[in-house]
Design a binder for these strands. Structure first.
Length: 492
DNA sequence: TATGACGAAAGCGCGGCCAA
DNA sequence: TTGGCCGCGCTTTCGTCATA
């Protein structure tokens, strides 16, 4: 059935020329105002779509389908994302139902292609069983077609819908008083009407609700997971009453096998990439080389201090979970009582103590402080106070002007890679609670760094390795998450 | 005397067990 | 089957010793 396009606007177009590909056969280009869709998600047996596409020769709507859909990603939903991104007019939006697995895949090609054409406006988690035919967790992904390649990206509206206005069992009884999805829809409208322009540095509560947050666009990059629950702390998730619903046995099996299939694919590809990157010359660098590294400890900040002088500066201590902070301290008190400023630059930190925290390595953002049981490592020499300018004048901004494009002091060992290499050295050293890793011990450590022919650090390879390691860490988190879900599922 | 390193213990969370 | 209590061990804090 085809609705004939009117002279001015195409309202609906239903295509059925090719039984397998359907609408995919005629991808519209820069032509559509809004897309609301729940594309089919099939990963198993989806190769017939690829094969069918290869069969079609010649151009459709001015493109060769084979090339047009060659954007990476698994399954039919990846084809539809390509279709959608291409179809939108600049500045126009699409709202797409996608399975969680698609958002969390670590293969980055599909994501980077999507990001080159679109901004992510929203990522909203729907409750399990929102769709009665699948127990797969699903999301609403809101995209906006970019107008120009270097347009800045707005923060991403993240939401957790626990309810959708009807019960999640087969009866689907309306529950108008219990409808997070409606609340999120209204909040999203407000976010769009407010211009989406707010500048934020980390996940930030939105309005005064627990179910929505704004998250900086750079946390939705091609190497990031695009799900949202990771932006809610454990406590916040408990407060939201997120609790596993009963799952059908068959759906449980489907879900688990689907999840593990995805994990295996991602693991294999990460492994291959890592092997390729590490197959090259490596050099050894000692942290005791003070012309190259800074190693120092944090400051004593007690709980009483936090109670008496609350403020804005996040305080990191030796917690086992990476993102837990001890509290937020007042910057003025920090300066007066301790004589320190919040960290000017990001750093790599090593936990010096704690039975299971000892030896954990984290990346910490600038503007925070560490307690005295945290060792701070940076890949540049400790700045000398009062650097004197050539003409003998004092210098405050002299040093600042010597910072690189990334806003950091000159360095050739990437911060992210430093964290990876340190973690590896420490893991190989088998450090125990008894062998605490204070500054002196950390200073004795030695790291392996990819180098070029001339023996100097190869920054590009470092960055690439750090990126793959991050992917592997995320896969590990997903395995952990899957395991938690499997354990907590009540099977019906 | 200031700073760093470390040991020790408070106290919290979790699992196990028992009673309703 | 569920709720509550108990005890153990781990996590995290902080007092104190060592060192410059």
């Amino acid at each position: 059935m085809v609705f004939e396009p009117t002279a001015s606007t195409i309202t609906f177009l239903l295509l059925n020329e090719n039984e397998t590909l359907g609408a995919l056969l005629q991808p519209p280009r820069d032509a559509v105002d809004v897309i609301l869709t729940n594309p089919p998600y099939v990963t198993q047996g989806s190769s017939i779509y690829r094969r069918e596409i290869e069969q079609i020769s010649g151009a459709r709507n001015g493109v060769s389908l084979d090339e047009y859909y060659d954007t990476g990603g698994l399954g039919v939903e990846a084809l539809f994302l390509r279709y959608i991104a291409g179809a939108l007019k600049p500045g126009r939006r699409a709202f797409i139902i996608v399975p969680l697995g698609l958002l969390n895949r670590t293969a980055s090609r599909m994501k980077s292609n999507l990001l080159s054409e679109c901004n992510i406006l929203a990522s909203i988690a729907l409750p399990r069983n929102a769709f009665f035919n699948t127990a797969q967790p699903t999301y609403i992904l809101a995209l906006e077609k970019r107008r120009v390649p270097n347009q800045s990206r707005p923060p991403v509206f993240c939401g957790i819908a626990r309810s959708i206005g009807e019960t999640l069992d087969y009866e689907r009884v309306p529950t108008p008083d219990d409808n997070d999805l409606m609340d999120l829809a209204n909040l999203f409208i407000r976010y769009v009407e407010d211009g989406m322009g707010e500048v934020i540095s980390g996940p930030t509560a939105y309005a005064d609700t627990q179910i929505a947050k704004l998250v900086p666009a750079d946390m939705f990059g091609k190497d990031d997971r695009w799900d949202v629950t990771r932006h809610w702390t454990d406590e916040e998730q408990v407060a939201l009453g997120q609790r596993a619903e009963a799952v059908e046995r068959g759906a449980f099996v489907d879900q688990v096998s689907q999840t593990f299939r995805e994990l295996l694919t991602d693991l294999d590809s990460a492994r291959a990439e890592l092997d390729a990157l590490e197959d090259g010359p490596m050099g050894t660098f000692a942290l005791s080389d003070s012309s190259r590294f800074t190693v120092r400890s944090g400051v004593r900040i007690r709980n009483v201090d936090l109670r008496d002088h609350p403020g804005e500066v996040p305080v990191y201590s030796v917690f086992t979970r990476a993102n837990v902070i001890k509290g937020r301290i007042d910057a003025d008190w920090l300066r007066e009582a301790k004589g320190v400023e919040p960290e000017e630059f990001p750093s790599v930190t090593v936990m010096a103590t704690g039975a299971s925290a000892v030896g954990l390595v984290h990346l910490r953002e600038a503007g925070s402080v560490m307690t005295d049981d945290v060792v701070i490592v940076q890949p540049w020499p400790t700045e000398e106070p009062g650097v004197i300018d050539v003409d003998g004048s004092d210098t405050g901004d002299n040093r600042l002007s010597s910072l690189g494009d990334d806003g950091l002091p000159a360095h050739d060992i990437d911060l992210g890679y430093l964290a990876v290499a340190l973690a590896r050295t420490i893991a190989q050293g088998g450090y125990m609670y008894e062998a605490k890793l204070y500054v002196r011990r950390v200073t004795q450590l030695v790291i392996e760094v990819p180098v070029r022919e001339d023996g100097r650090p190869d920054t590009e390879r470092q960055v690439a390795i750090a990126r793959v390691v991050k992917r592997i860490d995320e896969i590990r988190d997903r395995i952990d998450e899957a395991n938690r879900w499997i354990r907590s599922s009540r099977l019906a």
